[in-house]
Amino acid sequence: MRRISIFIGLVVLLFHTSCESKKHETKDETKYLVSSPIRKDTSITKDYVCQIHSIRHIELRALEKGYLQHIYVDEGQFVKKGQPMFHIMPNVYEADLQKAKAEAEVAEIEYKNTQLLADGNVVSANELAMAKAEYDKAKAEVKLAETHLGFTDIRAPFDGIMDHLEAREGSLLDEGELLTTLSDNSKMWVYFNVPEAEYLDYITSANNGTKQQVELLMANNRKFDQVGVVETIEGEFNHETGNIAFRATFDNPKRILRHGETGSILMTVPLTNALLIPQKATFEVLDKKYVFVLDEKGTVQQREIHVGAELQHLFVVEKGLSENDKVLLEGIRMVKNGENIHFEYLKPEKMLSSLDLYAE
């Protein structure tokens, strides 16, 4: 009986040892995919927070004192150039015009009489000149009175969308008091700030003066249906932020965009001879990015890298790797720093195509 127990124990031990050996052998024979970084001309899309302005945005103010007699428009209404918007009670200004016209008629009569006397050498040439000056002054007063009267009728200076009404009918207005604002939304100016380094890249890579096309991502995270162009760059950098303002212009035929909106400008920036690696080959430790690099003996070494830009599935590496390095693509959580592994090398071109990324 004792011999049988010993025999069974030996069988169990041999079986267990065989299983452990097979497991160890299976682990040792695991092959990991590795590849090398690849250099390629590509492009990235950078986004910049932007402010959206109407191409023309003005304040409409009362140019004369008086009671606001009529409001012909409503808030948010689209108005046409020349369309009446506000009317200030004109009684005082009509009276001033009638008075100026009467004084001009008197001055005209005096001038004509003096002209007749001057022709008969009754009065001097100086008296005639004084009469002529008084007549010219009176005509100027008529023009001025007509202008003041015209200021009581406020019309749209251009096609646009009006904003909030700042006064109501019957209000007593002071000279210069704000009535509303008017925005020409046929085109929009979109302002965004670019860091100095990116500005220099933009300027040095400008293609024979061709205007850079950009897209607008609206606040609802949808792209605006028109493509804009960068038309101007401000003359000075902001010394506090190190940025400079760009201005892009967008057509706005459907009047979707309004003055004061925000969004993001999407600008495609070319990258020449960029060093690319898959994002899945990296891992983070304390906000720093690392990869596992293999030496000639297949030993895994952890190495820090500096990422310059992010693409779909890819990182652009600025520092830490070269084209000759072999980088672990899979099994990052299964290996340890300094461990020897079996690996299978995947050509960079094949690695890139497997990521389903079209880098041009």
Results as ranks from 00 to 15, higher is better:
residue 256 I to G: 01
residue 267 M to Q: 09
residue 76 G to F: 08
residue 149 L to D: 03
residue 323 E to F: 04
residue 70 H to S: 14
residue 202 Y to H: 10
residue 267 M to V: 04
residue 29 E to F: 09
residue 125 A to N: 13
residue 17 T to M: 13
residue 340 N to P: 06
residue 262 T to I: 11
residue 31 K to T: 04
residue 336 K to N: 13
residue 322 S to H: 05
residue 67 Y to H: 10
residue 22 K to N: 10
residue 24 H to I: 14
residue 219 A to L: 15
residue 29 E to I: 11
residue 56 R to D: 06
residue 295 D to S: 11
residue 222 R to H: 12
residue 140 A to S: 14
residue 243 N to A: 10
residue 195 P to E: 03
residue 65 K to E: 08
residue 48 Y to W: 02
residue 221 N to L: 14
residue 239 H to W: 00
residue 43 S to C: 06
residue 17 T to G: 12
residue 164 H to N: 10
residue 183 S to V: 01
residue 167 A to C: 12
residue 135 Y to G: 00
residue 279 Q to Y: 07
residue 6 I to E: 06
residue 343 F to Q: 07
residue 209 G to H: 03
residue 175 E to N: 15
residue 294 L to G: 01
residue 338 G to E: 09
residue 72 Y to V: 02
residue 158 F to C: 08
residue 233 I to S: 09
residue 185 N to Y: 01
residue 157 P to C: 03
residue 219 A to M: 15
residue 35 S to V: 04
residue 160 G to V: 06
residue 341 I to K: 01
residue 115 Q to D: 09
residue 210 T to L: 05
residue 224 F to E: 00
residue 25 E to H: 10
residue 319 K to T: 05
residue 136 D to F: 05
residue 125 A to I: 13
residue 22 K to P: 01
residue 332 I to Q: 02
residue 193 N to K: 11
residue 98 Q to K: 15
residue 133 A to S: 05
residue 214 V to H: 00
residue 192 F to V: 01
residue 341 I to M: 00
residue 120 G to K: 15
